[in-house]
């Protein structure tokens, strides 16, 4: 254990080192950096963090991060309300948004099903999804979960829950990344993309 000159520094370092990707060395560097700056810099940071924690909300429709009871995506007039894209986490919403290819709505599950890891369907926002597609004008549900066994299981499970509604259900395509070399693609992905090939137009 590193010896710190001050208990105050030690506390701050310990708190910052809890963040993902930050060890105690980096934490110490950040703390000393903050001390070197004006006091206002640190106070602005703590104030921002405090407000983030206290004021952040989760959209009551899609559970994406929002500043109000409804998120900016659900509020946007121009978005296609007949499409709902199901994702695992808020980061995934941002990833799909960055493509600028999608104009529908989202639904953030908050994880994927895995009894081994202690995650059961009731821990996820599945009920609200079922309720939502029933009540809204949704015509298609697009599953954009990670192509892992947990992701596939979750897709399969939710599809079972949605089978009685007149919906189109789809999943994002799987295949070789654009701009990559075919010979370096892994066998399972390449094999799958041959099997689910698309006709050329």
């Amino acid at each position: 254990m590193q010896v710190f000159a001050s208990k105050l520094i030690e506390n701050a370092v310990q708190e910052i080192a809890k963040l993902p990707g930050i060890g105690s060395k980096t934490a110490l560097r950040l703390v000393l950096h903050l001390l070197k700056q004006n006091e206002t810099t640190t106070l602005a940071l703590t104030e921002a963090l405090r407000r983030l924690r206290q004021d952040i909300q989760y959209c009551r429709h899609c559970h994406f991060i929002a500043d109000a009871p409804e998120c900016s995506i659900c509020l946007a007039r121009h978005r296609d309300r007949s499409l709902v894209c199901v994702v695992e986490s808020p980061q995934d919403v941002m990833a799909v948004e960055n493509t600028a290819q999608y104009q529908g709505l989202y639904h953030v599950l908050g994880g994927v099903i895995s009894p081994m890891a202690g995650v059961s369907p009731s821990d996820l926002k599945i009920d609200t999804l079922v309720e939502r597609v029933q009540k809204s004008e949704c015509k298609e549900v697009i599953f954009a979960l990670s192509p892992t066994m947990e992701g596939d299981t979750t897709t399969f499970y939710i599809t079972k829950k949605l089978r009685d509604f007149p919906l189109k259900i789809s999943t994002i395509a799987r295949g070789v990344p654009i701009g990559s070399e075919l010979e370096y693609a892994d066998e399972i992905t390449l094999g799958r993309s041959i099997l689910t090939r698309t006709s050329y137009e």
Binding site: I113, S114, P115, M116, G118, S120, P121, S122, M149, T153, F156, Y157, K160, K161
Partner: peptide, 29 residues
Amino acid sequence: YYLQQRNALLKTYYEQRQWDEDLCQTYDA
């Protein structure tokens, strides 16, 4: 993988007494 998940599901049922037939059928499949 499916067997382990299914057994974990059966264990949680034993502890919490909440049965999710759809999830069990997912692992059955």
